[in-house]
Design a protein around this nucleic acid. Sequence first.
RNA 1: GGCGACGUGGCCGAGUGGUUAGGCGCGGGUCUGCAAAACCCGUUACACCGGUUCGAUUCCGGUCGUCGCCUCCA
Length: 463
Amino acid sequence: MIRVYNTLTRRLEDFETREPGKVGMYVCGPTVQSEPHVGHGRGAVAFDVIRRYLTWRGYEVTYVRNITDIEDKIIAAAAETGESTESLAERMGARFADAYRGLGVLAPDHEPKASEHIEEIIDLTSRLIDRGLAYASDGDVYFRVSALESYGKLSGTRPEELRAGYRIEVGESKIDPLDFALWKGAKPGEPYWESPWGPGRPGWHIECSAMAGKYLGNGFDIHGGGSDLIFPHHENEIAQSEGASGEPLARYWLHNGMVNLGGEKMSKSEGRVVDLATILSGRGGQAMRLLFLRAHYRSPIEYSSELLDDAEEALSRLVRFRERVAPGEPDQAALERFREIMDDDFSTPEAVSLMFDLVREGNRIADAGGDAASLAGAVEEIVAVLGIFDALPAPDEIPDVSAVAERFGVTSSGAEAIEDLIEMRRVARAERRFEEADAIRTALEGAGVQLEDGPDGTRWVRL
RNA sequence: GGCGACGUGGCCGAGUGGUUAGGCGCGGGUCUGCAAAACCCGUUACACCGGUUCGAUUCCGGUCGUCGCCUCCA
């Protein structure tokens, strides 16, 4: 039995799906206003692993991740660069797609865009007005928070407490400061769609309610997102969807922890971000993905270049083991253990721990000349569920060894020069001229090439 | 101020009422001509103060500290 932590109840609960064997999953995707950063990657990887695991457990998973491509922030950002909101959203959407691919995040089954669901949004808004849960005012439409008794159930906030100190934006025509916009009337120069309330655009939260409803219906299984979305975004989503349908929106609410930089949340608005593109192009996505997986998805994690170095070293152990031992039929006891671990709220840190236990045991057996194929098989299966090697590998630039080649009179260049130097060293060793052999090796190390002598000859790796 | 999370060994980071997390780093060893890789051993901790208990890092209470949400945010 899978157990998941549900933000709604703040407890671990048995995972029972709406329909046997099927999982409907909606994860809040990004507002495509600026470059994706490490925090976006963390969330995407967290839910990607959950999806992969549920699939591995035999569920038929329908995975929906939206793109919010029309929103105040996008309008503001587009105004700054002088491009249209469509152009900016498309450009940033592509950047997100690249980042997800680099991290090995599988494509969702549906990736709906807010701008392509205006009709559904208008329908939902109309329904809320009909039910007395929303009102039009001056070209805007607001959700009437006071009309929904259950408001606050996800975030554990009480409306009367929220009202104190709440601020109303200039130009808003709310009745209650807690009311939030379902539809915003367009100001001059802003992009708009026609609606029963005049030209305008959707509010921030409504698109998720509309699209989740369209692709997954009521009471689907998992709704995910970053913990910073619990309030107000998810609270408002619940208000909209449940207000309109009278049924629960989702059964389990899962939230990933934030990524910290220097102890504090990585945040665009604070200017404290590390762009994913920089990391992916420079160091690949595999170590980054492993770094995410080493902590539980709900815990906050720290990001730093040093921690990524650390993860790269760990990754290297794994890579070497996979190169060393060919996988066979997976060890069933190991997979059973993996299942127990992941059933417990997707405890990837323990899964990673198990994986390295298997690597060590496999190496031990291989050192002794035994057959570690079943352990390698288990590692392979775990690695696939964790998706580590679906992420981009580190770029394999060939270190520049021209100075070393010149010193030892090798005329070739690039990888060939390294091979020639290795051959030169092999001859020297065979003739027991160890000083010369070691000189070649030391020189190569200085150029970033590590030599490893094995039973099948010498291989090299980047330092 | 309200709500919530958390304080673990040099660093990151799991977990448990009494018995080895794991990774990285560091020290020693095996192997090797010497290295590297791999393996073995060591570095062995749970913020502080009370309480419950035969026994608490693990449960309860308090103190201190850190962080998140309450405004856009994965």
